[in-house]
Nucleic acid binder design. Sequence first.
RNA 1: GCCCUCAUCGUCUAUCGGUUAGGACAGGAGAUUCUCAAUCUUCAAAGCGGGGUUCGAUUCCCCGUGGGGGCGCCA
Length: 461
Amino acid sequence: MSQVRVRFAPSPTGFFHIGSARTALFNWLYARHTGGVFILRIEDTDKERNSEAYLNLIYDSLTWLGLNWDEGPKVGGNFGPYRQSERGDIYRDYIERLRGAGRAYEKDGALWFRLPGERYKVFDDHRKKEVEKVKIAPVVIEDRIRGRVERVEDEDFVIVRSDGNPVFHLVNVIDDIAMQVTDVIRGEDHLSNTSKHVLLYEGFGATPPRFAHIPLILKQNGPGKMSKRDQGALIEEYQRRGYLPEALVNFLCLLGWNPGDDREKMPIAEIIRLFDLPGVNQSNARFDDKKLAHMNMAYLLELPPERFETLARAYFERQADSVVAQAALSAPADYFSSVMRLCQPKIKGLEELPAYSAYFFTEDFPIDPKVREKVMAKGDPKARLREFAAALPGFDLATDAGIEQAIKDLAAKLGFGFGDYQAVVRLALSGTNVGPSITGMVRVLGRDRVRQRIEKFEAGH
RNA sequence: GCCCUCAUCGUCUAUCGGUUAGGACAGGAGAUUCUCAAUCUUCAAAGCGGGGUUCGAUUCCCCGUGGGGGCGCCA
């Protein structure tokens, strides 16, 4: 069998969203699974709505997700150009072939595709007008996911607008023929259009590709499919929020596909090995940001610390206008590194990082009044803090275990528990009751900073 | 309105006619721990309705119902 050639064909008319990304992903997976070719083709025939910014967003998003294309803009290929706006000559040739075969005619300034068969007129009460229909056998589509689908396409349709621009159905089919696409993998929203496409293939005397219509992604709340306007729909939003692309890709794979067993978190190489079109579900899936967040956390936890640190720095750099980010970025490299190692196992996503780590980078952090009230209400925390400060010079701060032992010794000597010191020291050092281990905090902050913060706290509270 | 399509816990899903209907996220409870997370244990939670076919249907067929999509000189 000849090599698989699939394409992802977005139009740069809006933000790149989850649904498009999943379609791109499934095409990419199928190409990688079969050792085929993944083509990127830009469907920019709608001059009114196209923009270069949206085009660049497509490139950026695909690249960020790791969905590299083998043919297309920037990388070239033997079937170019890969932007429809540059393929006018090709379309003209194909259109002439259609005219020559008597399958296209002009009406109202536009070019129409002629269906073969007997004609009759009928009133369409949805469109509130009389339309001409054609008696024609149903088009049969052997869909790789849906099975056998039959649909009657019984009206001529426009293929070139009166302004001279060819419509989507036409150029989509022409390009798939010209680029020798073997498998069309796209959203189910195109299933009803497929009858038009099959008829066009026949009009051109070409054999249609195999079709695979994948289920749609439904919006998280409310009715309908996910669209660019929905909360959490944009790829760039996840990029900006510091999500890990491998986590997002893994999550997206599971929306409409599964390996056939209970595994969920899987390396992409394993997904490529197992992915196949018959394994794709038929029913639509609702987007679930909680599950995505969980997947992201799982990936974040197992990241090598150096990579976490790199990503964290990049995240702060994107927030250059924030005071916390400024402070974090201007901290000494080894200090920043130590703080990140403390934070990585504790946070669920990079976007928690600024709030979670702020007090490491500034002395001007707030004391949470509710936490203060709670901590100061029990026992005699001020006394514990004084005792801690007094013992601090004798602590060995080299390791967490050493610090833990020092606090335990102090507590045992004076007849208190570890917790009696932990809570109030944490409050004085961070202003809150959440965070990394107290031993790690003391070690990373260092003796001087710890002493100063305790003194400042004692003076103010 | 017409056409296409889909239907298992709240959500994502497993089950190739025979299972105590399994897993994951979210939720509840507990354990662990220096806080908070994480982690571990555990609880609750599903076959849309009605007909068939069959010894036996979540699984196959039909009809409803419900969801989704399409019916543009948008893609």
